[in-house]
Design a binder for these strands. Structure first.
Lengths: 333, 333
DNA sequence: AGGACTTAGTTATACGTAAAACGTCGGCGA
DNA sequence: TCGCCGACGTTTTACGTATAACTAAGTCCT
């Protein structure tokens, strides 16, 4: 009896072409030069086409002991930023015959505890973003080649980072140059290395300016949250003329708070963001912000992982960022 | 000589526990009741823990002939919307022991032509969004169980849709109720079923209103593009008091065009969007828009695919949507 | 003429797992 | 006492692929 509707295998192709299964594997794997004649090769390709043959990846992965699949762990996909990181990583991966599977780590997705179980795929390596990295090694040990994004570069292993510290310095220079001295830092209320860097760097820079002051408010990363936090912080302005935000969404919240409080951006209050999301140019005035190239970040991350997979030694990459000056900042009144 | 650093297999666990490989498979697969004693089972689990054993998924997939992995094909990840769809699908998938791999279809990612080659994973099924669906069957035939999102429900196969038509009707009723009669439709310049529906439905509704007029402008889905298109379309206003946009980003562009032209939203011009992205509440005034629950969309899509995988017959799901009335629409002057 | 090479394949095997088929040993009812 | 059954495993096999090892027939060089 004919067996149930199942996909054709290389053996079926072999039968169709009148050759052995090995020959099929050689031809389709492009390893046939000098081992199979051109006419036979063509016959095999023709048979494969006729049957609609697709190699069984599970079998191939088992045989080869690798999967050409890597895992990208991100804190969330709720913003374009990590979508961009994924896109960049996937582009480079695809170029090298790799696939990328995602694990959005925070609560919201299933058995969250173990990315490696949740991603059903068998993996060759991992790119872990920000906070996830430490938790990761705890779960997995170092069984898999790992690249860390947005993570302390002094830690062992390969890291890829956006030069956030420099971004913060650019913001500070820009605002100081406009005459601002009294700052509010609206910080993301998320325990993560990048955000620590932002705070540390801003503080360090302002400490060197006589007469400068720096207050800090915290907010979860959301427009609503930032609006509330900024409104609370700005009701007693205490001379603040510039608000430095850890993220564009926070800045959007500040706009709304300012509107409520009757403050105008930028004439009463200069505001800066970070990321350069679509949001940044949608709001009025357009936001002065640090442009982070998320796709490039993803690309570099994947490239670094490919290097690790090639046995190259750990490395640290730093990606330059730059300030986009727009309408939300102006000379202090 | 000791072989290279390689992950422990079920055979290693068996040796460690002093049992056969089959016993390990039974115990760890929870198929052991009545076949292995509790004490032996515990010994096996202990050995597995000690060695840090993880089953080789490639081998398991090969053996079982399925992978518990599905492919989600989306037009792009550049906006939160499809990120939400992914999140929802992944949540349901994870709950059933499935993984989801992404294929963002449009140009930008590698050998783009064949999602199935690009996603390295071996697949059990596919969820295809909007435009991709037709192209998909062309590429793949119907070799894989398929669910189509945002696609003509009259086509054969299982579909899941947001009730866009109803959303458009709600927008139209809302604006008509406010006294608007002269409309500009800012349409997404993307060939896709959902956008056709939007245009058709709006036109159908307005045709039934005596004295109503409808103009149409097209724009790619981006703020900049929409700004240009809207500015061009609105320089000769011809009595237009309401702009209906296919997407929130387009609406954000309209805001900017209006500002340039000296038109105020909503007093001179009412504007509506669709999606309810973060953008919608970031801009001022907040945007009246149709809320599409992207995560729910993804959840329903995955549920539908699981049903197909269970051999259930094709079905069509429709997800209700509703209008969020905010500050961008008001009574006609 | 006879070995060495080349060409064009084939045969055999391993990857790690799941599970069907097959022992083996007591105990127990008839 | 015999036969059978349940408890507890083990042996064996198949999944589909890639590739190392082998074969067989020509070709060429000396």
């Amino acid at each position: 009896m004919p067996r149930a509707r199942t996909r054709p295998t290389s053996r079926d192709v072999a039968r169709e072409a009148g050759v052995s299964q090995a020959a099929v594997s050689l031809v389709l794997g492009d390893k046939w030069r000098g081992r199979v004649s051109e006419t036979t090769a063509e016959r095999v390709r023709e048979a494969a086409r006729a049957l609609g043959y697709r190699p069984n990846l599970a079998a191939r992965n088992l045989r080869l002991g690798r999967t050409r699949t890597v895992l990208l762990v991100v804190p969330a996909l709720t913003t374009e930023f990590f979508a961009g990181v994924y896109t960049g990583a996937a582009r480079v991966a695809s170029r090298h015959g790799f696939g990328v599977v995602l694990y959005p780590s925070p609560e919201g997705i299933g058995p969250a505890r173990d990315p490696f179980a949740s991603a059903q795929a068998a993996l060759d390596g991992v790119i872990a973003s920000s906070m996830a990295a430490e938790a990761l090694t705890a779960i997995r040990g170092d069984q898999l080649p790992l690249v860390m994004l947005d993570s302390d570069p002094s830690a062992p292993g390969t890291t890829v980072n956006l030069d956030i510290a420099d971004g913060v310095r650019q913001v500070a220079e820009h605002l100081l140059g406009l005459g601002h001295r009294h700052f509010l830092h609206l910080a993301a209320d998320v325990p993560s290395w990048t955000f620590e860097v932002r705070a540390r760097e801003l503080e360090a820079r302002l400490r060197r300016v006589p007469g400068a002051s720096l207050r800090t408010a915290r907010s979860p990363i959301s427009i609503k949250g930032a609006e509330a936090a900024a409104e609370a912080a700005l009701t007693t302005r205490e001379g603040v003329t510039a608000v430095v935000c850890d993220d564009d969404q926070l800045a959007a919240g500040v706009y709304k708070a300012a509107r409520r409080l009757g403050l105008r951006v930028p004439s009463d209050l200069s505001v800066t963001g970070m990321d350069d999301l679509a949001l940044a140019t949608a709001i009025d005035p357009e936001l002065t912000t640090v442009r982070l190239d998320a796709e490039l970040f993803g690309e570099r991350g994947m490239e670094a992982l490919l290097a690790v997979l090639n046995g190259e030694p750990p490395s640290g990459t730093n990606i330059p960022v730059h300030l986009e000056v727009r309408g939300s900042t102006t000379r202090v009144p």
